[in-house]
Design a protein around this nucleic acid. Structure first.
Length: 173
DNA sequence: ACGATGATGAAC
DNA sequence: TTCATCATCGTA
């Protein structure tokens, strides 16, 4: 297996972290079994000024984790049935995160959390082996031409922020 | 195109 | 305490 990404990896801008996460391995351990899948699709939610970011209207009980240190999981429930998996980025007190939308052959943020057994229990936990969910660097490079940027999905309400190209997709080269 | 399904946040 | 909304998905 690869190197476990340290917290410093996440203490950068959400856009930089998002880009850098493509091609890394999301690793899940539960009941002693370990599963790993390549991260293929992510979105950056860049801060309080971002109208699509949950922190845009300030701190609440739900988004509190985004205001904490980088490298912690922000997991929330939406549409009455799906868990969304995010990783907090940037400095303490600056609310930003990256949504992990696709890994391996599971495309869609709700499907991947269901497949890997991820729910609110992981909210606020750190990304390291002990939490049962972490990210590893396999060491191979992702060619630039395999990365695609598009607007984010499902944020049409965000006005001028809806069209910003903050979604990164890894496509087969 | 639409309904499932329930937490969230803002208004009252 | 209501009520519209929601970083989605399966079925049609």
């Amino acid at each position: 297996m690869g190197r476990v990404l340290p917290l410093s990896f996440f203490n950068r801008s959400a856009l930089t972290v998002a880009r850098s996460l493509l091609g890394k391995y999301l690793v899940r351990r539960r009941n002693g079994a370990v599963a790993a899948a390549v991260i293929t699709e992510v979105e950056a939610y860049v801060g309080p000024q971002d109208k699509a970011c949950h922190a845009h209207r300030g701190r609440t009980a739900r988004n509190a984790v985004m205001f904490g240190p980088a490298g912690h999981w922000y997991v929330y429930f939406v549409y009455g049935m799906h868990w969304m998996l995010n990783i907090v980025t940037g400095p303490q007190d600056y609310p930003a995160a990256v949504l992990i939308r696709g890994v391996g052959h599971w495309n869609g943020p709700g499907k991947l959390t269901k497949a890997l057994g991820i729910d609110g229990c992981l909210n606020g936990k750190m990304t390291h082996r002990k939490s049962g969910l972490w990210i590893e660097d396999p060491g191979c490079l992702v060619p630039q031409n395999a990365m695609q940027r598009t607007p984010r999905i499902g944020v049409a309400y965000a006005e001028d922020w809806a069209l910003k190209p903050y979604r990164f997709v890894l496509r087969k080269v």
